[in-house]
Amino acid sequence: MGTATDAVTVRGVVSLEKGAPVTLTEIVVPAPGPGEARVKVQACGVCHTDLHYREGAINNDYPFLLGHEAAGTVEAVGDGVTSLVPGDYVVIAWRAPCGNCRSCLRGRPWYCFDSRNATQPMRLAADGRKLSPALGIGAFAEATLVAAGQCVKVDPAARPEAAGLIGCGVMAGFGAAVNTGAVTRGETVAVFGCGGVGDAAIAGAALAGARKIIAVDVDQRKLIWACRFGATHTIDARDLDPVETIRTLTDGNGADLVIEAVGHPETYRQAFFARDLAGRLVLVGVPDPSMTLELPMIEVFSRGGSLKSSWYGDCLPSRDFPVLIDLYRAGRLDLDGFVTETVGLGDVEEAFTRMRQGGVLRSVVRL
């Protein structure tokens, strides 16, 4: 891989233009500068957000270096980095609190408004074009450059295929239930959308002691998966009205906490009406920027409770990642259950196809 003072040329998966199949090509990863770390990637999950980048749904800063749910080992660090040494086993976070923005200074670093990323660009080896790394990470590559604060040290006994998933989807869902939704013992919870994020929310609710966890989806495979992570009841929304069924399952009241992990106006509306009075609704599904929402304002007022959005599960990676890994190592959080298949760097485009078809929770690139 080279030394701390060398740039390295490695293979990476790049989206060159909107909607086009991804390309496996050579990229140049600089030597770490001040406050930066170069990470040798061992595994990286294939997330819907990567597909959103490929499709131009995030922004148009092509070419993109895709991949962001990653675990690996620190290969080199730049000047001023004291929290890491080469060889450290880390999960990469896409939030690295700056410590200085108004949110950090208010004691809420999980909302950091100026999250740190590497300042040096990675580039295409062929023509030197600057790459935009997905979520400031770019880990569909044999190595990537990030801010040192994005590297969270975890138990090296956790296999990278599973550990990397807490870097995005698992943390987002788990945190939506535990951090944003503040689920407590004995509560009822409903989760709309049982992909990776929704199932992680189910797992978080189960660990927090929710007594009834209702999974809602239109795919029977996903409902079966949801039971593995702790769902006590399932609703196939193709056959049943989810709002009425949730009320029936909760003594006519609605759920204490409803998590919308789809990001669609119709499922959000259903989730809104599936709450009990003074219940909480958490949106963690990412909507298309063109989507709009209409609700009767009197219902927003009269039902009370709270409507929240969950950013990255409102997590503090340095606090939460090691905890989730410890839960995994203790057999209490089934990270292995999220890994449907492992693939190679050259298989990302095919993994996107399987993702669209709904046949996987997560494909994971193993390097």
Rank of each mutant, 00 (worst) to 15 (best):
I298S: 03
P156T: 09
N179I: 10
D239I: 07
Y312W: 09
L65R: 07
G136Q: 08
L65Q: 13
P296K: 10
P133N: 05
D6T: 11
E341P: 00
P21A: 10
V170Y: 04
V218M: 14
P287E: 00
L105A: 12
M1K: 02
A141G: 04
A215D: 03
E244G: 14
R108M: 12
G358V: 14
V365A: 09
I202R: 01
G346H: 08
A255D: 07
T234N: 11
N100E: 12
A157F: 02
E55Q: 15
T144D: 08
P63N: 10
W225P: 02
W225Y: 04
A147L: 03
A163C: 12
I202G: 05
V85M: 02
S115Q: 14
A143I: 10
H52L: 09
F338I: 12
N253Y: 11
A278H: 09
G173M: 14
E299P: 00
R116F: 06
M297C: 02
L51F: 05
L295V: 05
G164K: 11
V154Y: 00
A271M: 06
I235S: 11
R329V: 12
V191Q: 07
V348I: 15
S15H: 04
A43I: 14
V46G: 06
L327D: 13
V178A: 11
A126Q: 12
R329G: 05
R238D: 01
V216D: 05
T23Q: 13
D326W: 05
K18Y: 02
F140L: 12
V85H: 08
G337V: 09
P322V: 13
G186Y: 08
G279W: 04
R95E: 08
Y53M: 08
I298W: 04
E266H: 05
I224V: 15
K18L: 14
V286W: 00
F272P: 01
S290D: 04
L16Q: 07
I298E: 07
R332W: 02
P109W: 00
P296N: 12
I298V: 11
T73D: 06
K222P: 07
G198N: 01
V22R: 08
Q270C: 03
A261R: 02
N179T: 12
T9E: 13
D239C: 06
T184A: 15
T248V: 10
E266M: 05
A7E: 08
A190T: 08
T353I: 14
A182E: 14
V170N: 08
L124G: 07
V85W: 03
D219Q: 14
A148Q: 01
L124H: 02
G72Q: 06
T342H: 03
D236T: 10
V90P: 01
H68P: 07
A70E: 08
A177S: 15
S103M: 12
V282Q: 04
S309G: 15
V22T: 15
G209K: 10
A20Q: 14
A96W: 01
I224Y: 01
R247L: 09
E142W: 00
R332M: 12
G358N: 09
P34Y: 07
D326S: 15
F321R: 11
Q270T: 03
G173E: 06
P86A: 13
T5Y: 01
A203S: 15
D219T: 15
Q357C: 05
E299F: 04
L51H: 09
L295I: 10
V90H: 04
V146T: 13
G136F: 03
G136K: 07
D127F: 11
R366K: 15
R269M: 04
L295E: 00
T23A: 13
S309F: 08
